[in-house]
Amino acid sequence: MLLELLRRDLRLHWGSLVVPILILGMGLGAVVMADEGTRLTGLILETSFLIPMLPVIIHQRESAKGTLGDLLVLPVSRAAVVRLRYAEVLFFTGGLLLLAHAAVWVELSVAARHPIPMSVMSRDQFLGVGVLLIFWFAYPMPLFLGWGMKGLVVGYGSLITLVVTLAMTETDLHRFIDASMARPVAMALVLAGLFTLSYLLSLKFFSRRDF
């Protein structure tokens, strides 16, 4: 079911995804050209801002065109639609990171540099992608699925306010982040927990919506 829904989304909405995917593609070029130490930093930031937009674009397009109602008239549960949105963000993130790796491996092969590493991303960079996905996707998604664009604006608005407030106060954010990164397993578990919590809230809010 999930695979069928994903294929349906890609088939119906590929036109809306062209521009963000092009921007992500340009990011791949930057990855190859950047210095080894910083090559993925830009891509990770780009991924974390743009990837969460893809399921939002698809969902909002379906809402605006009235085809979300058509979808829910099919034998598709609301839970399946929520699962789809969460699967999409993982699918697009995973896909892009794989592409980035592929681009770097090709570049290293062409330059005949050895050895070619299994992963060009560090553990902290993987965790960084997870943290940013929690902030930019998992935090606003329940509000978006429950209340549409108004919910999304409230979600992003409150998030930006929080980040700006933290940046302007004396909070020792860096020390907290470093301490968290030093415990990668615990950090990964916390991220997975937050992602699950977001999914459960999305289910609850989306199941109450009128179409």
């Binding site: 079911m1 065109k65 085809t67 099919l74 034998p75 598709v76």
Partner: peptide
């Protein structure tokens, strides 16, 4: 019916079929 405006009639069937 809104369905999917850009899809052809035969494609509509292909999009809906997997769910039934």
């Amino acid at each position: 019916p809104t369905l999917f405006p850009l899809l052809r009639v035969d494609e509509l069937g292909e999009v809906v079929a997997p769910f039934y």
